[in-house]
C-alpha cells in the first residue's frame, strides 16, 4: 500500500506533491487527462511571487511538475473514476485499475460553470468556449457573446473586443455584478452591448459550428434569436467534487468542507485548493493549502506509526 495518493495537479496538488515527496512519502499524483488545473487556460500570471516578469500559466505548471518529479513524485495522467475512502486502506480507481493508500489528498480544483444545455455540449470547441484568451483570435471580425455579469465575464468581453467586431454581454439581471471599474470599462467600450434580463435557452448551430443563440427576455417574457458565431462562458466556477459526494461533506454549492486546517470528515483524507475554496481562488492560496495538506498528511501518517 502507498503512503499517499494526491488527486489533482493544479498548484494545490503539485505543491502537496513537492512537500510529500521531499518527505520521502513517494506520492502518486493522479493528475487527470487535462492536468495542470485552471492555469493551463491562462496566459500571463503576474501575481505569483517569485516571477517578477510574469510567467505563462502552462509554463508555470510544467515547472511545478518538474519540481514534484525531482523529489520522486509519480505522475499519472488519467482521471479518477471512483473512490472508496472509509477504510484504513483508501481505494482510488482509474477505470479498472485500483490504487490503495493510507492517506489521500484531494486537490481536484474547480472548473468554469456551464449552462447545462445539450446544445452547449454539442458545440463545445465549435463556437462555445470558456477561455477567451485561448480562442479569442479565431473570432476576428465576428460577432460573439459573453454570458455573465461578473468581473471575469467583463474581462472576457473586453479581451474579445480586440478581435471581434461586436461583443454582446448577456446578463440575467438588470445590473452587472462586476466591480465599478470593470463596469465603466464595459460601458465605455463601443463594441460591447449589454443585453439585460436575458437568459440563454439554446445554442443554435448548423450542425458544424455556432450560428446564434435563443435568448429569453425574463423581463418581458419573450424569446428571440440572435445571430453570432461564438459564446463564451463567464458565469463562475464549480468545484470538481462529484466523485466524493456522499463520502466527504460539502456545502450547498458542492465545495468540500475542511475542519482544523485541511482535515476532512474522513480520517486520513485531506483537502486542498479550489475544491474547498469559494472565496480566494488564487494560484498562491491553492499552493499554500496544498502545503498545509501535505504537512497535515505527513503528521497524521507519523501518528499512525508510519
Amino acid at each position: 500500500m502507498r503512503n499517499v495518493i494526491i488527486i489533482g495537479s493544479g498548484p494545490a496538488g503539485l505543491t502537496a506533491a513537492i512537500y510529500t515527496s521531499r518527505a520521502n512519502l513517494q506520492p502518486l499524483v493522479i493528475a487527470g487527462q487535462s492536468f495542470g488545473g485552471q492555469l493551463m487556460n491562462t496566459t500571463d500570471v503576474e501575481n505569483y511571487p517569485g516571477f517578477p516578469e510574469g510567467i505563462m500559466g502552462p509554463e508555470m505548471m510544467q515547472k511545478f511538475i518538474k519540481q514534484a518529479e525531482r523529489f520522486g513524485s509519480e505522475m499519472m495522467y488519467k482521471d479518477v473514476t471512483k473512490v472508496e475512502l472509509s477504510d484504513d486502506s483508501k481505494k482510488v480507481w482509474v477505470g479498472d485499475e485500483m490504487f490503495e493508500a493510507k492517506a489521500v489528498i484531494i486537490a481536484t480544483g474547480a472548473e468554469p460553470k456551464k449552462l447545462g444545455l445539450d446544445s452547449e455540449e454539442k458545440y463545445w470547441g465549435k463556437g462555445v468556449s470558456s477561455c477567451a484568451t485561448c480562442d479569442g483570435a479565431f473570432y476576428r471580425d465576428k460577432v460573439v457573446s459573453v454570458v455573465g455579469g461578473g468581473d471575469s465575464a467583463a474581462e472576457e468581453a473586453l479581451f474579445l473586443t480586440r478581435f471581434a467586431s461586436k461583443v454582446y454581454m448577456i446578463v440575467r439581471k438588470d445590473e452587472l455584478r462586476a466591480s465599478k471599474i470593470m463596469q465603466d470599462r464595459v460601458m465605455e467600450n463601443e463594441k460591447i452591448e449589454v443585453l439585460w434580463n436575458r437568459e440563454v435557452k439554446e445554442v443554435l448551430g448548423d450542425e458544424n459550428v455556432v450560428t446564434g443563440l435563443k435568448l429569453y427576455d425574463n423581463k418581458n417574457d419573450a424569446e428571440k434569436n440572435i445571430e453570432l458565431q461564438g459564446m463564451f462562458l463567464g458565469i463562475g466556477h464549480m468545484p470538481k467534487s462529484e466523485i466524493f459526494q456522499g463520502q466527504i461533506t460539502s456545502n450547498d454549492n458542492g465545495y468540500l468542507e475542511v475542519v482544523n486546517g485541511t482535515y476532512s470528515n474522513v480520517d486520513g483524507v485531506f483537502i486542498a485548493g479550489d475544491v474547498n475554496d469559494e472565496r480566494y481562488r488564487q494560484a498562491v492560496t491553492a499552493s499554500g493549502s496544498g502545503c498545509m495538506a501535505a504537512i497535515d498528511a505527513e503528521r497524521w501518517l507519523e501518528a499512525q506509526g508510519n
Partner: peptide
Amino acid sequence: DIRSIPNMKLFHKGEVVHEFIG
C-alpha cells in the same frame, strides 16, 4: 471552421474523418 486550438483533424481522401479538439 477552426474555433479552438489545438485542433487536429484526420484527413482521408480529402475528407475530415475525425477531429481532436484540445
